[in-house]
């Protein structure tokens, strides 16, 4: 049954650095490209050249605008994909067992051969991480690139999700969040990584690193002039400057 497995010893997931993400969308198309030809049905597009193009993507990058009361407004780019929740409601609602959480590493997957496309799991997910593919009629979601991360045919360093491998700024990190010593866990600890919508009780594995504080230039001290240039004139200034050489 698709009750959830006991908390896995290994929790694979992503850590996404909002301080670094420039919103380039590389992870979006890299994900589409990999998953269009990889695990499960291709990610179809409808009306692809028409008035309302619409397709299945497993990862999308939003932009938000933050306007603090006392500082300049700013934009934060925000990638959104499955968070591989510990307490994944998408799994428990599934009537067919198609949706499941892997006991070994916590990855949440859809067995497309068993999926009836009822859409309930997408309803149950607070994060919009699931999209029903209109051509295949089955639920698609981020697989954490389950067909890459242990893929023996790939070079060791390539055994990471497609979106992580492609991210030009290195804003996406992949690893075991159950292991406090892992690089991702340390990042989370150092940078105050957080969960999305904790009130939903889903206990996501993925973490987001908050943007660092911005616009602190005003704290910088100005430079002290060498001398009062008006009385000293250029010659006085030259003496002082060149005297230092």
């Amino acid at each position: 049954m698709t009750s959830l497995p006991p908390p896995p010893a290994k929790k694979l997931g992503l850590v996404i650095d909002l301080d670094t993400c420039v919103g380039c969308q590389a992870c979006v198309t890299a994900c589409k490209g990999w998953n269009d030809q990889g695990h499960g049905a291709p990610l179809s597009d409808q009306d692809a050249r028409g008035a309302d193009p619409s397709g299945t993507f497993l990862n999308r990058v939003h932009s938000y605008e933050v306007t603090p009361p006392d500082a300049a407004a700013r934009i934060v780019h925000f990638p959104r994909s499955c968070l591989h929740c510990d307490n994944a409601p998408c799994v428990t609602v599934c009537p067919t067992g198609a949706s499941y959480k892997r006991a070994a590493d916590g990855i949440v997957l859809v067995n497309e051969d068993a999926c009836i496309g009822c859409g309930l799991c997408a309803w149950a997910c607070p994060y919009g991480a699931r999209e029903l593919d209109a051509a295949a009629g089955v639920m698609k979601k981020c697989t954490l690139c389950v067909d890459r991360i242990d893929n023996a045919t790939l070079a060791e360093q390539d055994r990471v999700p497609a979106c992580v491998r492609t991210c030009p700024t290195g804003a996406r990190h992949f690893g075991d969040l159950a292991d406090p010593e892992s690089a991702v866990s340390r990042l989370v600890a150092e940078r105050g990584g957080y969960e999305l919508m904790p009130e939903q009780g889903t206990r996501p594995t993925n973490r987001y690193l908050p943007p660092r504080p911005r616009d602190r230039i005003d704290d910088e001290a100005p430079l002290a002039p060498l001398l009062d240039i008006r009385p000293a004139g250029l010659a006085g200034w030259l003496d002082r400057v060149l005297g230092r050489l």
Partner: peptide, 28 residues
């Protein structure tokens, strides 16, 4: 939106969606 993005504390003031990820529509 603040709990959904975690941008609440930083935002203090306003937080809003600036641009959707795609101008095209989607299942969600």
């Amino acid at each position: 939106l603040a709990t959904a993005t975690g941008l609440g504390p930083a935002a203090g003031g306003g937080l809003r969606s600036f641009a959707p990820p795609h101008t095209g529509s989607n299942y969600l």
